[in-house]
């Protein structure tokens, strides 16, 4: 069974818990193993990078050095972690002076980083390692009534468009078409959600998310699907404030892409953290639930 090193990052253990729950459930359903990196530390995300760049790179490099020892690909589901790890790798490769400094910092902890780790996003793992055909072969319940606005956010495609286009990516669109959903044309799919601006300059943050929500409605979507904890948080948790401020808008549920994948695979909603959603989507979720009861297995002749 293919095993990946799992670098969760802080958000996934906290506000984005349902992302982790659904991610682990989906990986298990696909017969792929995720092993959490032991003793991982915070990646610093975008914030720390702005405060003390070198220190931030060193922090990030520690994770890379630890992961490198395991000789496996690293899966980083959080967009910020994903980008910071990629950026660290890139800068270490490009700037010899930085490389030397980081090397010294790591050496002080008896670590060394050779630059051989591959950092991957789970979306890309599904598309490339599993493949669309195999994903379709796992669908138990097609996501018929879902009209999805796929929202990639900026960090998984810029500035390193490693697996998709930097402004008009398609991987998530293809993924959900394969799962049977209706994917609407959503040109704002990589437009900024404001990041931390919802916390610092709230009116700017709210406005940016309002534009995203409004356009999703306009395009006929009935839910937004994201890959990034901060995007999901901004779009969902702040929705009631946005609705109050711009009162010409209706509610729209915002899911993590792994949650909907899990639904299509027939995994129970609780296993996917769907009870944690702040904007409820009961009718939508009911449309992919076949009323069933779990039965006690008895000895039965099975003719397949």
């Amino acid at each position: 069974m293919k095993t990946y090193t799992y670098y969760p990052g802080c958000s996934i253990k906290g506000t984005a818990k349902q992302y982790e729950e659904s991610l682990l459930a989906v990986f298990e359903a696909l017969d792929l193993k995720l092993e959490e990196l032991s003793d991982w530390n915070c990646c610093g995300a975008t914030m720390y990078m702005a405060v003390d760049e070198e220190m931030s790179f060193a922090l990030s490099a520690r994770n890379l050095a630890l992961a490198e020892k395991l000789e496996r690909d690293v899966v980083a589901p959080c967009s910020a972690c994903y980008l910071v790890l990629l950026k660290t790798q890139d800068y270490i490769r490009k700037y010899p002076e930085l490389r030397i400094k980081i090397g010294k910092a790591l050496a002080a902890a008896d670590l060394v980083y050779h630059g051989t780790v591959k950092v991957r996003h789970p979306l890309e793992v599904f598309i490339n390692d599993v493949g669309l055909e195999e994903l379709q072969n796992r669908v138990r319940v097609p996501l018929r009534s879902f009209k999805i606005a796929p929202y990639y956010g900026c960090q998984i495609v810029r500035p390193y468009p490693n697996f998709d286009h930097s402004c008009y990516p398609e991987t998530m669109d293809l993924l959900f078409e394969t799962l049977g959903a209706d994917v609407v044309d959503y040109p704002l799919k990589t437009r900024c959600c404001g990041g931390s601006l919802t916390g610092t300059i709230e009116e700017v943050g709210l406005r940016l998310n309002y534009i995203l929500l409004e356009e999703a409605h306009r395009r006929g979507a009935n839910c937004i699907v994201t890959v990034c904890p901060l995007c999901q948080f901004n779009l969902e948790a702040y929705q009631n404030r946005i609705l109050k401020k711009y009162n010409n808008l209706n509610e729209m549920p915002v899911f993590y892409f792994t949650q909907l994948m899990g639904l299509a695979f027939g995994i129970e909603p609780e296993k996917l953290g769907l009870q944690r959603q702040m904007v409820r989507a009961d009718q939508l979720l009911a449309s992919v639930q076949i009323p069933v009861e779990k039965t006690r297995p008895e000895k039965v002749e099975q003719v397949a």
């Binding site: 072969n137 669908v139 319940v141």
Partner: peptide
């Protein structure tokens, strides 16, 4: 899976429109 279904995809779509539910695998 749906991929392996021999049925005509256009007919499957009509069925879905009419409210037929599908459970694969």
């Amino acid at each position: 899976s749906r991929n392996e279904m021999p049925a005509d995809q256009l007919e499957v779509e009509e069925a879905e429109k009419e409210g037929v539910r599908f459970y694969f695998l």
